[in-house]
């Protein structure tokens, strides 16, 4: 099958590649670009481990072809940390609140949470739970992920983070 030349911006850098039309975006990111932080958990659009940010949208990159991302602006987990190399508020929140265990869902979860906080700076617990409902975590039971996102929201908003009583 003839290959198509594609270009896009990933984590601020222009990238290009030759792909078959059927190449899934997640494979292009993981195998052509060697950005392996984006994971594959179910391949059926349920688990969200492959979530990335495309042009301001959270997208499951296992259900999009790489050719469709021509000209798009993409952020993956590798582009989330602050410019000075320190952890972003969300990354720090996940660490401080023990919002991860095996780490496999974490990149997708953080990308999704980042977009959520950009659309809703102070989400309620219910809004957070709805907001991350396209991401499955097998380890944490979500409770500490919710706290991690609340921690990050407070840090970004400059407000005090109060850990909810159990």
């Amino acid at each position: 099958m003839a290959k198509t030349h594609i270009t896009m911006k990933v984590n601020g850098a222009e990238v290009e590649g030759l792909v078959e039309p059927r190449t899934l975006l997640v494979h292009f990111i993981r195998e052509n670009l060697q950005l392996t932080g984006t994971h594959i958990g179910c391949e059926t659009t349920h688990c969200g481990a492959c979530t990335i940010d495309i042009d301001g949208m959270s997208v499951k990159s296992c259900t999009m072809f790489a050719v469709q991302a021509q000209g798009c602006e993409i952020m993956t987990i590798e582009g989330v940390a602050n410019a000075d190399g320190t952890l972003s508020a969300l990354q720090e929140g996940f660490r401080m609140m023990h919002g991860l265990q095996c780490g496999f869902c974490t990149p997708g979860m953080i990308l999704r949470a980042q977009r959520l906080l950009q659309e809703n700076a102070s989400p309620s617990e219910e809004e957070i739970r709805m907001g991350i409902s396209g991401n499955i975590c097998r380890c944490t039971g979500y409770q500490n992920i919710v706290k991690a996102i609340q921690y990050a929201a407070a840090k970004i908003n400059g407000t005090e983070f109060k850990e909810a009583a159990e």
Binding site: T63, M64, L116, M130, I132
Partner: peptide, 9 residues
């Protein structure tokens, strides 16, 4: 319908 990511697409 579906979940947040699916609703973007």
């Amino acid at each position: 319908i579906a979940d947040p990511q699916v609703r973007y697409r």
